[in-house]
Amino acid sequence: MNTVAEDTVVLEVKGLTTHFHLDEGVLKAVDGVDLRLKKGRTLGIVGESGCGKSVTSQALLRIVPKPGRIQGEIWLRRSKGDKQGEVVDIVKLPDKKKEIREIRGGEIAMIFQEPMKAFSPIHTVGDQIMEAILLHRTEDRKEAYRLAVDTLVEVGMSNPEQRMNEYPHQLSGGMRQRAMIAMAVSCQPAILIADEPTTALDVTVQAQVLDLIDGLKQSTGTSVVFITHDLGVIAEISDEVAVMYLGKVVEYTDVDTLFHGAIHPYTKALLASIPSVSRRERKTRLDAIEGRVPVPMNLPQGCGFYSRCPKAQDGVCNLADIPLVEVRKGHSVRCLLVDA
């Protein structure tokens, strides 16, 4: 797979877990996730709120809030610095040391859901973008300023020079998200993690932001991990998709197969719950998934979807943890009731 540049795997996650040891027990937010991100491709992670997709993205940068503990392997192919080309395990890097900080922002950058909260309210937008540039690209403040303005132009910000001196509360929601994206891409990272970047935006602005991220990906060859609960966004932007439920990947496939050949009952249920304009039987009600996502603490053995699954079989699904099985090349499913 190393022969063709396009197929180079830049990030590989194996058996990633993130557990929160609380007074009440162990909360398994991420419980064994395997992912593979190829150069220049977009991996979509989709799931309901509380399925662990955001924690997964934070775990990739090791910025999970306390008392979260990360285990497993996160192999990153370094794209910059002395160790360029080497493959390192982010989980094993020493905490609070230089190498992990070089990776954060420099090689893997993140776009957050709510730009209003993600920016410090008392520092100018320029200051916050330049901070990243000064850390990863140049130590010269003038140069950094120029690079920051360039990036703002790149993300389509009007009056970039003026925006540099403005505070987050002075920008509109869409502008803030553009600034956020500028901050993330300002250091030309090899991997861009977008954690629900469009959720807090208007639909029209959503489309612009999606276009922007897609355009940046095309022009720079950045790989993108795109996290969302919106299947429509997934259809638009992803190459491959991981469907998450209760901290586990339940189905992993390319985007076409997801929409036309999904196998896992949960994925099917998710797809059935999308409202559609072209839906023929307009009279029928939308298929909602029964119940709600349980809290991943003290869970019973077996399939996590057991309590809500329409096909669940007592004595089959609730006995032991279900393995993720590759049913076809590039299509894995975590369900016993599927013929391999």
Binding site: Q58, R104, F112, A118, E131, L135, H136, M183
Partner: peptide
């Protein structure tokens, strides 16, 4: 978290 994700010490 944003600042940490940027690689700030």
């Amino acid at each position: 978290i944003t600042a940490r994700a940027k690689g700030v010490s």
